[in-house]
């Protein structure tokens, strides 16, 4: 089932990616080949095998609901492109 360039544009939007018009054909071709390749799984005789959740069948560990992290906001925000008064800046969303 080959993907169309429209499909690729839709997936790109879901993934918050953008492709230039001249990149779309190559990505469409590559992605179609990958999907064709994984389509082999359709014929796999899985029967009633349960989907694997963890390689060691280990349940998710829980911990006590207590504060364990200390405030390192200033440290972490050194890696941000735009901050002000401890807040991250993004383009205006509310007019």
């Amino acid at each position: 089932m080959p993907l169309s360039s429209k499909d690729v544009e839709n997936i790109a939007h879901l993934a918050r990616l953008r492709f230039a018009e001249n990149e779309v054909p190559a990505f469409t071709d590559n992605l179609s080949r990958i999907i064709d390749f994984v389509n082999q799984l359709e014929a796999a005789p899985v029967g009633d095998a349960p989907p694997m959740a963890h390689p060691l069948d280990q349940p998710q560990r829980l911990r006590k609901d207590v504060v364990t992290e200390k405030d390192q906001r200033a440290e972490f925000q050194k890696n941000a492109a735009a901050i002000e008064a401890g807040l991250y800046l993004v383009p205006r969303v509310i007019e």
Binding site: L3, V8, I11, A12, L14, A15, L17, F27, N30, L31, I34, I35, V38, L41, E42, A44, P45, V46, A49, P50, P51, M52, A53
Partner: peptide, 30 residues
């Protein structure tokens, strides 16, 4: 990286999850 993100987004998108991700996790069990 974009190819992998795109592949992953596609196999997890509405209507395809069972056919791909769930199926793959079952094969993984096998």
């Amino acid at each position: 990286v974009k190819r992998r993100i795109m592949t992953g987004t596609y196999v997890l998108s509405a209507g395809y999850y069972d056919a791909y991700y769930l199926k793959a996790q079952k094969v993984r069990q096998l």
